[in-house]
């Protein structure tokens, strides 16, 4: 039991940090634009595919370095030459644009790389068990995923809260006019935030690609969960997004590991059930089967009890 708990906690942590790498960029970009960027997970997917192609020629590590830069540059260009223009036509236009972009990226990925799953591999250097606990192995690659995400977050947190440029970014996101009047180039700052946000999504794609498989549907799979996280955490709140990411990562991981079925739960609650019950299909669902739905269940609960999200503020 303990080993299951330890391992699903570690795996949940890996997933949670990965989710936060997407959610942090998405929530920052939301505070800036005022709308959710539906194409955010597409940048994650591009990260994985770019890194895959680069890894074939130059190896995994070159991909880790170059792919996020390419994705970030692409993100910055999208902001500069498309979103900024669309922004003038209001929020609905922006939403429609990001929807369209998500489709476009998915089609482009299928066109250039094909519809099949790519054999994107984690580097040989990290193909060993980091430690063995209760006879179960924890791979070095997962340890690497935790290290790199935590490292990036600490650096970003320090940059955002301590440095002058971080303070300018914080202020520009909420009061762009005031900051512009003090002599700061706010459009450039927004382009940079968009670039860094999408580059982060790119990093997530690079390191998740080998574990969660690299295929054209990967953006959709993760995208919806990341939206849920950003809403649960409270739109625009980095702290809220962090808590929600870890919560969902752990929740899913525990659910999958528990291997409990409805009958077990019902028995545990002291209820009897019979096989010929009309709702038998529902009864025989196991917790791992409903794990993918849990984030949405949590979303509904949060929206019922705390409509602004965990850390969200009520709009005036």
């Amino acid at each position: 039991m303990l080993e299951v708990f330890v391992f699903s906690t570690l795996n949940g942590l890996v997933t949670g940090l990965l989710l936060f790498m997407l959610a942090s960029g998405l929530t920052l970009i939301f505070s800036m634009m005022g709308v959710l960027n539906f194409a955010h997970a597409s940048f994650y997917m591009l990260g994985a595919y770019f890194a895959y192609s680069i890894s074939l020629k130059l190896g995994f590590w070159a991909g880790l370095l170059i792919a996020p830069l390419l994705v970030g540059a692409f993100g910055a260009l999208v902001e500069r030459y498309a979103l900024r223009r669309v922004h003038a036509h209001g929020h609905v236009a922006e939403l429609v644009f990001t929807f369209g972009l998500a489709f476009l990226v998915e089609e482009a990925v299928q066109f250039f790389w094909g519809a099949d799953t790519k054999n994107y591999q984690s580097p040989d250097l990290l193909n060993f068990p980091l430690f063995t606990l209760f006879g179960q192995e924890f791979s070095a690659y997962r340890g690497f995923m935790i290290t790199i995400s935590v490292g990036i977050f600490l650096a970003l947190y320090y940059m955002l809260t301590r440095s002058r440029i971080g303070i300018i970014i914080q202020a520009a996101i909420t009061h762009p006019h005031t900051v512009a009047n003090l002599g700061h180039n706010v459009p450039l700052i927004f382009m940079a935030v968009f670039g860094v946000g999408t580059a982060l999504a790119g990093v997530a794609g690079v390191i998740a690609g080998p574990v969660l498989t690299t295929f054209p549907g990967m953006a959709v799979v993760l995208g919806s969960i990341v939206f849920v996280i950003v809403v649960i955490g409270g739109l625009g709140s980095l702290g809220g997004a962090f808590v929600a990411s870890l919560m969902i990562g752990l929740l899913q991981s525990y659910a999958i590991a528990s291997n409990l079925g409805m009958p077990d739960l019902l028995n545990w609650l002291g209820l009897e059930f019979s096989r010929d019950h009309p709702l038998n299909d529902l009864w025989t669902l196991t917790l791992p089967q409903i794990a993918p739905v849990l984030p949405f269940l949590l979303l509904v609960l949060v929206l019922i009890f705390r409509p602004t999200g965990l850390a969200g503020k009520r709009e005036e």
Binding site: I167, I168, A171, T174, V179, L182, G183, H184
Partner: peptide, 16 residues
């Protein structure tokens, strides 16, 4: 800026 400190508010005024 209510959430920034007095010093950070002043820092905001410094131009590049």
């Amino acid at each position: 800026f209510p959430t920034l400190t007095v010093r950070q508010n002043l820092m905001l005024g410094i131009k590049n």
